[in-house]
């Protein structure tokens, strides 16, 4: 069975490529033949031409830079804080008993709903965006880290204890690696959420970044083509960064964990 599935892996890519090309072709044709009004949904070629006319590479690079800086910094700190709190809540019962209910209380609130409060607390500048993206990463990671800690096979801990490990060394050398697969899932989800939150925050209150770039184009009555290119750019960025994080996770735990 295994050789068969490898056989299909090659054709998967080809078929997927064909599918993607077909989809782009269908889009192009429907806009060219007037099936869809190019003024509201331009074909890919028109959109790219419009974008090339109205945007300089410098503008795009500048907005891209700000978006990436925001999402990476917010995500990094949010994920680190989430992992630390989640691991501590899973390891130290007393801390867990107090921290968990508070987290569970706040968790159902979507990160975007924090935007007004973030502005009240931190003003309209960068810190409020950072805070929202931080939350987007924090909640999935803290939940996953806690669950990972709670579902560690107790035999692993006992086995380590027979070698005299206890306290912080036991936590760092056995418990955290054992919880790593769950933690990794949370990190992946957290990245997706952070990214979605970034775009929303930039749409709602920002003066630079990719989200700002497209909403500004719309507010100034610019070209729909630019908006379409911007959307695709954000999508591609999300896809690439997600794949990169997936690959990094695989390098981290893939050698001993199946997924």
């Amino acid at each position: 069975m295994k050789p068969l599935s490898r056989l299909s892996a090659a054709s998967d890519l080809t078929l997927g490529l064909i599918g993607a090309i077909l989809a782009v072709a269908a889009w192009e044709i429907s806009a060219r033949t007037g099936l869809v009004d190019p003024a509201i949904f331009p074909s890919p070629s028109l959109a790219i031409r419009a974008a090339a006319e109205r945007l300089t590479a410098e503008t795009v690079a500048d907005n891209l830079f700000w978006s990436l800086l925001r999402v990476f910094s917010g995500f990094l700190l949010g994920a680190l804080a989430g992992a630390a709190v989640g691991i501590a809540a899973g390891w130290y019962r007393g801390f867990g008993a107090i921290a968990r209910p508070l987290i569970e209380l706040l968790r159902p609130i979507p990160p975007l709903a924090w935007i007004p409060l973030a502005i009240i607390w931190f003003g309209l500048g960068e810190p409020s965006k950072f805070f929202i993206i931080f939350l987007g990463a924090f909640f999935p990671v803290v939940t996953a880290a806690y669950q990972g800690m709670r579902s560690i096979d107790p035999m692993l801990l006992k086995a380590a204890q027979t070698f005299g490990l206890s306290g912080v060394p036991l936590l760092l050398r056995v418990a955290v690696p054992a919880a790593a697969p769950d933690l990794a899932t949370g990190v992946r989800i957290g990245w997706g959420l952070s990214f979605g939150v970034l775009v929303a925050a930039e749409l709602i209150a920002a003066d630079r970044g990719l989200g700002y770039m497209i909403i500004n184009e719309r507010n100034t009555g610019g070209s729909v083509g630019v908006i379409v290119v911007g959307i695709l750019l954000i999508g591609a960025l999300n896809l690439i960064t997600d794949a990169a994080i997936g690959a990094a996770i695989k390098r981290w735990i893939g050698r001993w964990h199946g997924a």
């Binding site: 069975m1 050789p3 068969l4 490898r6 056989l7 892996a9 090659a10």
Partner: peptide, 10 residues
């Protein structure tokens, strides 16, 4: 016989 991706047969 299982056919492999490389075309080889196992």
């Amino acid at each position: 016989v299982f056919t492999q991706r490389s075309g080889g047969a196992v």
